Simulated scan of single mutants.
Amino acid sequence: MSKKPEKATLTSAAIEEQTAAFLKSGGSVEYVGKGKTGQVAYQGSKQINLKK
């Protein structure tokens, strides 16, 4: 029988530890307003014309 790969699950404590380490190392968190993705759009929207 082959072993199934174990899924990595993060607990709240582990996430808090990683966040604290990130901030301690000089990282920063940027607030992104509600409804925004925080990603920069490099390309225009792709529209498909189905009436060709």
Rank of each mutant, 00 (worst) to 15 (best):
G44F: 00
A14H: 12
S45D: 15
G33L: 03
E16K: 15
T37P: 02
E16T: 10
V29N: 04
E30M: 10
E6M: 06
N49C: 00
T9A: 04
A13T: 12
Q39S: 08
K24V: 04
T19Q: 13
T9L: 09
G35E: 08
Q39N: 09
A21N: 02
A14I: 10
A13P: 00
T19S: 02
V32I: 15
A13C: 00
S12C: 07
A13D: 15
A8L: 14
I15W: 03
I48P: 00
K34D: 11
S25F: 01
L23F: 02
K3Q: 10
S28R: 14
T37A: 12
Q18P: 02
I15Q: 10
L50P: 02
K46M: 05
L23V: 13
G33T: 04
Q47V: 11
M1I: 12
S2H: 06
E16L: 08
K51V: 07
A21D: 01
V32W: 02
A41L: 13
G38E: 07
K36H: 11
G38M: 13
K51T: 11
K46F: 07
K7G: 04
G38K: 07
K52V: 07
K3S: 09
V29C: 11
G44Y: 01
A20C: 02
I15C: 09
K34L: 05
G33F: 03
K24A: 15
I15L: 15
Y42G: 06
T19R: 15
K3V: 05
V32C: 06
V40L: 14
I15P: 00
S12Q: 05
K36L: 12
T9Q: 12
I48A: 03
I15D: 02
A14P: 01
Y31P: 05
S28N: 08
K3D: 09
A20D: 14
V40S: 12
A13N: 05
F22C: 03
T11E: 03
A21I: 01
M1P: 09
A20P: 00
T9H: 10
Q47I: 11
E30H: 11
Y42Q: 11
S28F: 11
Q47S: 08
N49T: 04
V40C: 06
K3F: 08
S2N: 05
L10Q: 09
S12E: 13
V40G: 07
K4R: 14
A20H: 05
S2G: 02
G44K: 00
K36D: 13
K46G: 00
